[in-house]
């Protein structure tokens, strides 16, 4: 079976990064194009059908965030943002402008590949799902601003979520009502910490239940399905 090669566009002003990254991704079986600024990117997008863009935030001229925002408005090509700032606020800003994932420099190239796979699979799996990287959602006694790793109860007390728990909860909410298998969830929740790679989804589900369910033994928000799968069954309310 001849596999179709995914085409990835790397946008970064540093040749020192684009060139070895192109070689590395090429070795992992991706078709690569390189642009060093927003204009270059636009030219390439006109002639090539790109599956994913790896975009640097800090660039002279038009910066990555504004490019990302522009891309979301026009064509919904998945974006992974790269930045040297690993601050929580940068992550939030990145997700708010519509990036699908986010990686701080210096990153582990293997992790980048894992993220690329995950993002591409997600975009293919349910192409028309409601993309929820931002916005406010209410369920049970909780409120959550999807770009923040925290849930807030009715008394305004905040409970923090780990990156893994956050990704898991967001994925479950995005596909609310749909049963997701462990493999699918694992794909979606591959987090920035490498320890996430081989961690079992069941463990994460049970920790998440500890935090959000009134009685984790009799879950009412995230239910388990026979044959191995989970779904979000809580009453969702979208707040503006």
């Amino acid at each position: 079976m001849t596999t179709l090669k995914y085409h990835i566009l790397i946008v970064d002003d540093e040749r020192d990064i684009t060139d070895p990254l192109a070689t590395y991704l090429n070795k992992h079986g991706y078709e690569i194009s390189i642009a060093h600024n927003g204009e270059g990117m636009d030219k390439i997008l006109l002639r090539v059908n790109v599956d994913l863009i790896v975009l640097d935030v800090m660039m002279p001229g038009e910066d990555g965030l504004s490019i990302c925002r522009r891309l979301q408005e026009k064509n919904k090509i998945p974006v992974i943002l790269l930045t040297a700032l690993t601050d929580e606020t940068d992550r939030i800003v990145g997700l708010e402008v519509g990036a699908d994932d986010y990686l701080g420099k210096p990153f582990n190239p293997r992790e980048l590949v894992a993220r690329i796979k995950s993002v591409i699979r997600r975009s293919e799996m349910v192409p028309h799902h409601k993309k929820l990287s931002t916005g406010m959602v209410k369920f049970d006694r909780w409120r959550i601003n999807l770009s923040f790793k925290e849930i807030i109860d009715e008394d305004d007390v905040v409970t923090l979520l780990s990156s893994g728990e956050h990704r898991l909860l967001i994925s479950l909410i995005e596909y609310a009502g749909i049963i997701l298998s462990r493999d699918q969830l694992l794909d979606m929740t591959k987090g920035e910490e490498s320890k996430m790679f081989d961690r079992s989804i069941d463990n994460h589900i049970s920790r998440l239940r500890q935090k959000i369910e009134i009685d984790p033994k009799r879950p009412k928000i995230i239910t388990t399905h026979r044959g191995g799968g989970y779904s979000f069954v809580g009453q969702l309310e979208y707040l503006t």
Binding site: E14, D16, P20, Y24, K27, A84, L85, K105, P106, P109
Partner: peptide
């Protein structure tokens, strides 16, 4: 601390090759 991260990323990529 910040500027060192870009060359460090490059180095990390090159090492991977």
């Amino acid at each position: 601390s910040h500027d060192i991260r870009t060359p460090l990323t490059a180095l990390r990529l090159k090492a991977e090759l």
